[in-house]
Each structure stands twice: as C-alpha cells, then as structure tokens.
Design a protein around this nucleic acid. Sequence first.
DNA 1: GAATTGACGTTCT
DNA 2: AAGAACGCCAATT
Length: 110
Amino acid sequence: DWKFMQINNKNFFEKVFEITARIPYGRVTTYGAIAEFLGSARSARMVGWALNNANTLNIPAHRVVNRNGLLTGKRHFGGNNIMQQLLESEGIKVENDRIVNFDKIFWKPE
DNA sequence: GAATTGACGTTCT
DNA sequence: AAGAACGCCAATT
C-alpha cells in the first residue's frame, strides 16, 4: 500500500511511472533528475524504490540510471544483463555498466 | 522499537 | 582525487 505518498494530488509512484514512461526512445535520465522534478522533498532513493515496484508494469525503467550513467539497477532486471541488452537494442552503447556518451543522451524531465 | 539496508546524491575531509 | 559522512525515507529483520 503506497497511497500514503501524496504529491500534488497524485501519488508518488504514479508520477515516477509517468515520467519514466515519457523518457524518449534511445535516451536516459537519472533517479536524481526525476526526484528533482517531483520536488526535492523526496530523495532520489525513493525513485529507485518506486521503480523497484514497477516490475510488472510495462514502463521503460531501463532508461533510468544513476547520476554517473552507471547501470546500478541492472540486478533487478533478471539475471543476464537484461538491462544492458534493452539499452543496446535502442542504440545506446554500454561499457563496463556505464552508458557511453551519457551527457549527450541524457534527457531532463520537463 | 532499534538497526540496517538500499535501483541515490551532495558535501565535507 | 578519493573516501567518509550525511540526508533521505520505506522496508526488512
């Protein structure tokens, strides 16, 4: 039950999912950027927590990485570098769990 | 209840 | 330049 988190008449999870779904194909954003967009009241940790509960939903959670372009959430996509494969299937290069040209393909929520 | 642990990030040594 | 310290806040033990 996560109804307790209310921000601007919408609950926190919903907003995180909404923004994540808006990330353009072939682009990525960060936990912190989403948290900032939602208002700095909530920390970036909460965004990760929200996405953790988004497994069953059909949203591109693989397009969210940490501030350094590191695939810190890869373990939550099942065993075998699924997250990296999803990104590479969109033309995003990944080396050593880090996104290549991260600053170029970074998308800031707006 | 207390302590620990995160899909995090900034600031202070 | 690198690492510790914190703030964050729900979940878990």
